[in-house]
Amino acid sequence: MEPLVSVITPAFNRVTYIRQAIESVLSQTYSQIEFIVVDDGSSDGTFELLSECDSRGELRLFTHPDRQNLGQSAALNLGLRHASGRYIVILDSDDVLHLEKISKQVAYLESHPDIGMVYGQAMAISSDGKELFPIPPNDHVEPGDPNRLLLDCYMALPGGAMVRKSVFDQAGFFEESFRASQDHDMVVRIAEVAPFVYLPGIVFYYRKHAESISQQGLERRWIAGFEILARAKKRFSYRSSTIRKRKALLHFRMGQVRWFQRRLLSALWHFIRAGLGDPKRSMAVILGFEKAR
């Protein structure tokens, strides 16, 4: 028999897009799917839409007590506690799965029992569904090194990846104190406990729209990044150069945030820390050889 796959979607005020996300799961070429959606206190009609889907048997809907808004990590953890599949897929409520994503990734993991996680490409799309660019780029090669993943944060967990439930059991739950970067924290922890591979090809569509992360959200992301790095250093034997360069990158990102906030002295301090931590990369950015995305 085909193994069961649990698809978990955290949802908060996504009534405009979530129907497409649901349809992309229901239309998969793979049949053994358990679809779990956790509403995180939506107030825009998302909860009512999901309740109708639940009553039709299209998904299993869960909420926090009193329908509280506890954040994405808490929603994902609630979904994981109810998941019974051999494999886990996390789909954000405004993204869309490729029709063959689950069947292809299950086939790979079933034939490679030593691999804990497989991921593919996302196609970035606009709010109206227009294709923009692939993530990662078409020439991407996965080195399978946790050092590289911690340093450059080149993949995120939602949409593109499929992870063995047994690997989640080893890595633990999402960190609920993080209101940003919890996906990067989790994928780093997964890479520390299990081998992971990349299969070229689009497996989901990542929506970029006007509700994307704000400057305040970016500040939360990079503050969380420093804590993620500190925890990773205690947990795993990363190279000292990886820790130093990642810290430099985080200082650079905080410098950008402070610059846009017009906190110029703070921005300058972070840029200096970035330059001292990774002078080669800093010079490449200054000279235009590397883009400061």
Rank of each mutant, 00 (worst) to 15 (best):
T16W: 00
D95Y: 04
Q20M: 01
S73Q: 06
I102K: 09
C153D: 13
A21V: 01
Q215N: 03
K233I: 08
S266H: 06
T63Q: 04
R60L: 02
M186A: 15
W269L: 10
D66G: 04
L80F: 12
I223P: 03
D95I: 07
L80Y: 11
R281S: 11
R244C: 12
P143W: 03
A292Y: 02
D66R: 09
D40K: 00
G57I: 02
E227V: 11
V141L: 03
R179S: 13
R246S: 08
I223Y: 05
L59G: 08
V193T: 11
M283E: 12
D54A: 14
P146M: 06
P136S: 04
E142Y: 07
L229Q: 10
S177F: 07
F289W: 12
E131L: 05
P158M: 10
I88W: 05
Q20L: 02
H140W: 15
R293P: 06
R148W: 04
R67G: 02
E100I: 02
I36Y: 01
I286P: 07
P113Q: 12
G225T: 09
T16P: 00
N77G: 07
F271P: 14
A230L: 11
G172F: 09
P134F: 07
M186G: 10
L59D: 06
W259H: 15
W259M: 14
S51W: 02
C53Q: 03
G45P: 02
K245T: 12
